[in-house]
């Protein structure tokens, strides 16, 4: 490991400024007391944060996004665990092909998924239903869930399971008492990443969200395309604060880079 030159440190400072500037600006603007986008030059006001609470549109969308993230992450993880077990533990015909198939939504642009889900849900009459939204989100987050769960299973020392079997445990007991507790950290990481991905998704959801099932990012997107006001800034600032707390917790338990490495490619 070598030391960074002063030039490198200046570069780093500029880079971090670039990364944080848009988020910091949102947080500052959110505290304005004026009716338009401006810096809070004459003191901090919570006026626009109170305004969020008076706006049921956003509150409803927030709850819907929470429930959607919760449902789709849970479904994704609970089908990713058995699938990962199959990939990690068995050699079977078509293994590589099925695995590539499960990761393939990563190769499909969300806009393409969006238009496809729109036709599909309309055709089967699920357009506007919560469950329809959940299933489409499961497809989007499955690759992430699968990657994290799979890597925690392949990293597992299999001899612990052999040990349990030799001590008299049946297959099911081995899974419940040894395998599952040992992969829980990976599964939980997969769940969190899935939840966040679902909660943040906008491109695909723009197509499948109906007026009664609009997610928060979609609602915000629609709002921004019409007007950019302090209300949307305070809402965004609130999301940034919540994300920061989640992020600090995640970083403490897993290391952010370990979780997000699963997000690339």
């Amino acid at each position: 490991m070598r030391k960074n030159t002063p030039l490198a440190l200046v570069f780093n400072a500029l880079f971090l400024t670039f990364m944080l500037a848009p988020l910091v600006v949102i947080c500052l603007v959110a505290f304005t007391s004026k009716g338009y986008i401006s810096l809070p030059t004459d003191g901090f006001s919570l006026r626009w944060f109170r305004a969020i609470l008076d706006n049921p549109h956003f509150i409803d969308a927030f709850y819907l996004s929470l429930m959607l993230g919760f449902a789709s992450a849970t479904i994704a993880v609970s089908i990713a665990v058995p699938a990962s077990l199959a990939f990690a533990r068995y050699k079977f015909t078509g293994r590589a092909a099925i695995m590539a198939f499960f990761l393939s939504p990563l190769m499909v642009p969300h806009i393409v998924l969006g238009v496809s889900f729109l036709s599909f849900l309309t055709k089967i009459g699920w357009y506007g239903s919560f469950m329809g939204l959940v299933f489409t989100h499961v497809i989007i987050i499955m690759p992430y869930a699968l990657r994290l769960v799979l890597s925690s299973i392949t990293g597992l020392d299999q001899s612990a399971e052999s040990a349990a079997a030799s001590l008299g445990a049946s297959n099911w007991v081995v899974f419940r008492r040894v395998t599952l507790p040992m992969i829980i950290p990976g599964v939980a990481g997969g769940w969190v990443l899935s939840f966040i991905t679902s909660f943040d998704e906008v491109t695909m959801s723009v197509f499948v969200a109906s007026p009664s099932t609009t997610t928060l990012p979609v609602r915000m997107y629609e709002h921004i395309t019409e007007t950019i006001d302090p209300l949307i800034a305070s809402l965004s600032a609130s999301l940034i604060f919540i994300t920061m707390i989640v992020m600090l917790i995640l970083d403490r338990f897993y290391g952010l880079d370990k979780i997000l490495v699963g997000k690339g490619k």
């Binding site: 848009p22 988020l23 949102i26 943040d200 940034i240 994300t243 989640v246 600090l248 952010l256």
Partner: peptide, 28 residues
């Protein structure tokens, strides 16, 4: 390193709509 990592990777956890809003406010 871990502090800088948080600053660089953290924005990934924030919806792209929010991040774009930040730029809209900055460059309008």
């Amino acid at each position: 390193k871990s502090i800088c990592m948080l600053a660089i990777l953290g924005p990934l956890l924030v919806s792209v709509v929010v991040r774009t809003l930040g730029w809209a406010i900055l460059i309008g």
